[in-house]
Design a protein around this nucleic acid. Structure first.
Length: 277
DNA sequence: CATTACCTGCAA
DNA sequence: TTGCAGGTAATG
């Protein structure tokens, strides 16, 4: 479910609600493989009594900074949500982990598909997680020149390249298609064959789609909610994603859906052309 | 590079 | 009943 914008909104909405609170109980954990590390007895013992100092994001990981040097890293994968609820709220069949706070509220980790994961990391573990990911596309240092260096020499097609978290962090299946449409680049172009004059356009497009999605509180197709339980509305602004058969707003050609690298990909065959030659 | 696995629910 | 879903890791 969530890509960079959705995780960013969850991080912000969670921070606004729980920074300064202390975790007093692990009230529910009914899907134990959700906790990847450390083992469960240690996980329980280490988080109880910890204060939430900050909530941030790296790639699609939510990073809940705790006191005593620990970081609770949460990946929501396809269908996870993290919602703060009041003392009277009830868990349901999709609630797999509940953390009680010292003011009576609780953080619910609901996840229909059970792909979501939690790790409690020390400083070394956090460094490893950071090192496993490419640059943050909304970071100050991510430039068109850096993107050009990333594309140079790679035979991977643009669309799967954008989805590779080790190369660029945070882009997922929606925003990869959206960014390529804005940059007028066909998703099947081998990275090294992208016309050099279009690289700055792709750089700008990536930042534009992610920033717009954040401004729209993320895209709620199915499960995604902010930590207030609210839907985003960026799904109302897609140019190509989930719009197969509809006319391209730029050239009028019908938008195509094609499976590329095992993922649904949406693009306009009229204005996203393969380079000739 | 492609395929399969991990899970559940929903719409065609 | 089948195919599909915002993600990723493991395996040929």
């Amino acid at each position: 479910m969530p890509e960079l914008p959705e995780v960013e909104i969850i991080a912000r909405s969670l921070a606004a609600q729980v920074v300064g609170r202390r975790m007093t109980a692990l009230e529910k954990l009914d899907w134990e493989r959700m906790v990847e590390t450390p083992d469960l007895p240690d996980f329980r013992a280490l988080i109880l009594g910890r204060e939430i100092v900050a909530v941030g994001r790296r790639a699609k990981w939510l990073l809940v900074t705790l006191d005593a040097g620990w970081t609770l890293a949460v990946h929501l994968r396809m269908s996870g949500t993290l919602i703060v609820r009041g003392p009277e709220a009830l868990s349901d069949t999709h609630t797999h982990l509940v953390l009680a706070l010292d003011d009576g509220r609780r953080i619910f980790f609901d996840d229909q598909r059970k792909f979501g994961r939690v790790r409690l990391l020390d400083a070394a573990g956090l460094r490893l997680l950071d090192a496993a990911h490419g640059p943050e596309p909304l970071g100050d240092t991510f430039s068109a020149e850096q993107l050009g260096r990333i594309l140079a020499g790679r035979r991977t097609k643009l669309k799967p390249l954008l989805l590779n978290q080790a190369i660029i962090a945070g882009i997922g299946n929606i925003y990869a298609s959206e960014a390529l449409w804005i940059a007028r680049l066909h998703p099947q172009i081998p990275a090294a064959d992208a016309p050099p004059e279009q690289v700055p356009a792709l750089h700008a497009a990536i930042r534009q789609v992610l920033e717009e999605a954040i401004a729209n509180q993320g895209s709620s197709l199915r499960n995604y909610r902010t930590s207030y339980g609210e839907r985003g509305h960026n799904q109302d602004h897609f140019r190509v994603y989930d719009r197969a058969g509809e006319p391209c707003e730029r050239c009028g050609e019908p938008i195509t859906r094609e499976v590329i690298a095992q993922r649904s990909t949406f693009y306009c065959p009229g204005c996203q052309r393969m380079p000739v030659g």
